[in-house]
Design a protein around this nucleic acid. Structure first.
Length: 375
DNA sequence: TAGGCCATCTGGTCCT
DNA sequence: AGGACCAGATGGCCTA
C-alpha cells in the first residue's frame, strides 16, 4: 500500500537461474507442502507427504554432471554424489537403495536420463536436514540483523514513529532523500531552505508516507506533493505555508516574519525556492532532486552531491525520547557567529525532548567539535 | 477480497 | 567445504 513504483529503472531482470517458474506452469500443489524438506522421492513410501515439487531438495553438486541437462526444472530431489561415499558399507547400503530411474513422469513423457538416483541413507538424510536447518537459522539471523539495521535507519531519518513504522522500501527511500537533502545543504554552504528540504525529503515517496512525513514535520502534504513526473506541484494556495513549520525565527537569527514572508509571498517552485534568510546567500538549487531532476548531469545516477571533501557528523541525543510522540517538528538552528555556515544544525522537536542533529562540515582548514565528540 | 508488506524457506552462486 | 549473499516462492497478516 505504501509502496509505489519508484524510479528504479527496471525492477525486472533476468533471473540468474531457473527459479522463477511461471506459477501457472507448476503442477497443482498440495495445500501446504511448500516448505517441507523432502529428501526422498520414493512414491512407494506410504504415509509420507508428497514431495514438494518446488522446494524439494536437489543436490546435484557432482562436478561430473556439469554440462548435463538440468535434471528437472523443478527442484526434485536428486542426490547423486556424496563426499563421504568412500564408506564401503554405506556404499553397499546405497547400492541397495539405489532406485531405478523412473521411466516416465507424471505426464507420461520419458524422463530425462542422467545418473541413476539413489536414495538417501537415514544418516545422510539427517545430515542434509541438519545442514538445511542450520542454513535456515543463519539466514533468519542474517535477515534479523538486516532488519535491525533498518530499524536503526528508521530512527535517524526525519520521521520516526513506533506506532506507524515506515516500510522497508520507504525507509530506504526516505533515507536516500534525507542524505540528498543534507548533502545539498552542505554543498550549498548556506542555511537550508526548509520547504525545499522537505520537498526533497518527500521526493518519490508514496502518498501515505508523504502524509506521514508531513504529519511528522507539521506540514501539509499537499504543499509539497510531486506529480507523476517527479516535479513538485503547488496546488493552489500557499497560505498554509506559514504554519507548515513553527518557524524558529529566533533560532535562525532572523525575524520570525522574514523568512516566512518569503514563503508566503513568493510563489515557490522547485527551481526557484530560495528564501532569503537575510538575503546574503546565493540561490543554490541549481540542481534538483535525487530523482533525476538533472537530466544529463547524473545520467540516472542517484547519488548525493556530497563534496567539499567533508564529512557528516550526526549527533543523535536522547534516542529514548524518540518516538514518544508521533508529532515532530523540524527546525533549523543557526549558530550565532557562524555566518560562514560551516556548521548547520537541525533539530527534530518533540514535546518531550529535542533531538539535536548537528551537521559539521569539515573542509580545508576547518576543525569542528564533531571530531572531539565520541562517535 | 485484493493488494501490500513481511518472514521464512530454499537453492544457486560467490567467496574465503 | 562451508558460510554469506541473493533472489524466487509462498503463506500469513493487515488494511482499504
Amino acid at each position: 500500500m505504501l509502496t509505489l513504483p519508484y524510479e528504479e529503472p527496471d525492477m525486472t531482470y533476468e533471473p540468474r537461474f531457473g527459479a522463477n517458474y511461471p506459477r501457472g506452469s507448476l503442477p497443482d500443489l498440495e495445500p501446504n507442502p511448500i516448505h517441507s524438506l523432502n529428501v526422498t522421492s520414493d512414491p512407494e513410501r506410504e504415509g509420507e507427504e508428497e514431495p514438494d515439487p518446488i522446494h524439494s531438495l536437489d543436490i546435484t553438486s557432482n562436478p561430473e554432471r556439469e554440462g548435463e541437462e538440468e535434471p528437472d526444472p523443478i527442484h526434485s530431489l536428486d542426490i547423486t554424489s556424496d563426499p563421504e561415499e568412500g564408506d564401503i558399507s554405506e556404499r553397499e547400503d546405497e547400492e541397495e537403495e539405489r532406485e531405478d530411474d523412473i521411466q516416465q513422469d507424471e505426464n507420461g513423457h520419458p524422463r530425462k536420463r542422467g545418473p541413476r538416483r539413489k536414495k538417501l541413507t537415514k544418516g545422510r538424510q539427517e545430515r542434509v536436514t541438519v545442514r538445511r536447518h542450520e542454513a535456515n537459522a543463519r539466514e533468519r539471523s542474517r535477515m534479523h540483523g538486516l532488519n535491525d539495521a533498518l530499524e536503526s535507519l528508521r530512527k535517524v531519518v526525519p520521521c520516526y514513529s513506533k506506532t506507524q513504522k515506515l516500510s522497508k522500501i520507504e525507509t530506504l527511500r526516505l533515507a536516500k532523500n534525507y542524505i540528498w537533502a543534507l548533502s545539498e545543504t552542505l554543498s550549498a554552504g548556506k542555511k537550508p531552505d526548509l520547504l525545499g528540504f522537505v520537498q526533497t525529503l518527500c521526493k518519490g515517496l508514496s502518498q501515505p508516507t508523504t502524509n506521514l512525513v508531513a504529519g511528522c514535520l507539521q506540514l501539509k502534504a499537499r504543499s509539497f506533493l510531486t506529480d507523476h513526473n517527479g516535479e513538485v506541484t503547488y496546488p493552489g494556495s500557499t497560505a498554509h505555508y506559514d504554519n507548515m513549520y513553527p518557524y524558529p525565527g529566533a533560532d535562525l537569527g532572523t525575524a520570525p516574519g522574514q523568512a516566512c514572508s518569503t514563503l508566503v509571498s513568493g510563489k515557490p517552485s522547485y527551481h526557484s525556492r530560495h528564501y532569503s534568510y537575510g538575503g546574503q546567500y546565493e540561490p543554490y538549487y541549481d540542481h534538483t532532486s535525487p530523482e533525476g531532476g538533472r537530466e544529463g548531469h547524473l545520467g540516472g545516477q542517484i547519488s548525493p552531491p556530497l563534496n567539499f571533501n567533508g564529512i557528516f557528523s550526526l549527533k543523535h541525543d536522547e534516542p529514548e525520547e524518540y518516538g514518544k510522540s508521533g508529532h515532530y517538528g523540524m527546525r533549523y538552528n543557526s549558530v550565532p557567529g557562524h555566518g560562514s555556515l560551516s556548521s548547520a544544525s537541525m533539530y527534530r522537536v518533540s514535546p518531550e525532548g529535542r533531538l539535536h542533529y548537528e551537521l559539521h562540515l569539515r573542509s580545508a582548514g576547518q576543525t569542528h567539535k564533531a571530531e572531539t565528540q565520541s562517535q
